[in-house]
Design a protein around this nucleic acid. Structure first.
Lengths: 215, 215
DNA sequence: ATTACTTTTTGATCATGTTCAAAAAACGAA
DNA sequence: TTCGTTTTTTGAACATGATCAAAAAGTAAT
């Protein structure tokens, strides 16, 4: 077993900070492991002592962006907004946070979806859920009771889909992704209203159980 | 401008055949550009004369698999099957064809979704649509007229989603993807029946127009 | 056949992600 | 302090995807 010394965490943090700075200035392809090491005043091998791969660094970067999405979107979700408004705000803020890093899209997908969901991923998911719970509970009028419970999960799933779409959206300024959000928000809100009807409710139940088999 | 000579197409074909053979035996990571060249009795640079990148070769490989999906699934769609059966058959056959190449998942996604689609991709999409049209027209009873027209497109979209899911499905033997298909087929069939109801129909219309803004 | 031109092929070279054995530094017990 | 152990760091290597200038082979007109 390897015990992390104080100097250890410091070095790791240094590497990570350097990497994030380079990511922001040079982009994904432009940020080489050698550059991260050199810019930190360390050797290449040393970087690999703390990070198994470049993707692992990207993963930490991505986690930071998710965190940033959460903290910037949260205060926008003020009580009294319609559900549609809150959904649109949360989704658009997500795109806004990701916007400067579109080049990272496929890498983000790789790290966010691929990884044999470890414990960390569970914590992460719980955090993301929190935002969508907030979207729901701050909405007025509140969504029908029958669906209120499950709505955060559905919204989270929709966000994942939009995230995927964005990652491979090659339109100018990810315009198509924005259009998608713009149109999806009112549609989802309408769907929620309709969920009072038994037929619609059974469909939603089907979708939910489908999600659960897949998760 | 470069004109392709007879020897040219021959060499290209040789490289491609070698690549496909190696892909099938050594996998994605195990098949190196050097190996493809050497096994073809050619130089590395020569391979790059005919293929811009390794991904481009993978893309051709993927197109072949899609073709194989089409030709193997088609005869299974016999008249008289229920819609659910046909959907399940087509989806499962898709997974079956892809199964030996799960390692290629992310690479397939990259080539299938990413690339600023040229004309070729349109042809490809039309072909894929054909299968789903067959799924619909061979079903008994035929789906409600109101939705019959749009159903192929919806099914195609669902298949893309399942394809994505499969690509990042790290469960044993892609078990979760199979479970997803198993549960999705009857659900979709139920949804189609319900589409006779105006409420459901409006939802489907919403989804369709959403797709169209995104495509 | 000679010549001018185009297509194909090569071989060397680069850049970058990744690995690894060994040196250096830090640590902890005697 | 000193010695053995562990953690950190280095520097050299490797493998592979990609590029490119120049050689070779092919083509077509005169």
């Amino acid at each position: 077993m390897s015990k992390q010394t104080a100097k250890g965490v410091e070095t790791r943090q240094l590497l990570l900070n350097t990497a994030l700075r380079l990511f922001a200035t040079k982009g994904f392809a432009g940020t080489t492991m050698r550059a991260i090491a050199k810019e930190s005043g360390l050797s290449l091998g040393n970087a690999y002592y703390y990070f198994e791969s470049k993707d692992e660094i990207v993963h930490e970067f991505y986690r930071g962006l998710v965190e940033q999405h959460r903290t910037t979107a949260w205060p926008m979700l003020v009580e009294g907004n319609t559900l549609e408004t809150n959904i649109r705000l949360a989704l658009e803020q997500g795109l806004a946070v990701l916007a400067p890093f579109h080049e990272f899209g496929p890498a983000f997908i790789r790290t966010a979806f691929s990884g044999s969901h470890g414990e960390l991923s569970d914590v992460q998911r719980a955090l993301e859920f929190g935002l969508w719970r907030q979207v729901v509970t701050m909405s007025r009028p509140l969504p029908p009771l029958a669906i209120r419970q499950d709505l955060p999960q559905l919204l989270w799933l929709i966000q994942r889909g939009i995230f995927l779409f964005w990652a491979y959206d090659s339109s100018e300024k990810a315009m198509r992704s924005h259009r998608l959000v713009k149109n999806a928000a009112p549609m989802i809100a309408r769907l929620v209203v309709l969920s009072r009807m038994p037929v619609v409710r059974t469909i939603i139940d089907d979708v939910l159980s489908l999600i659960r088999t897949a998760t």
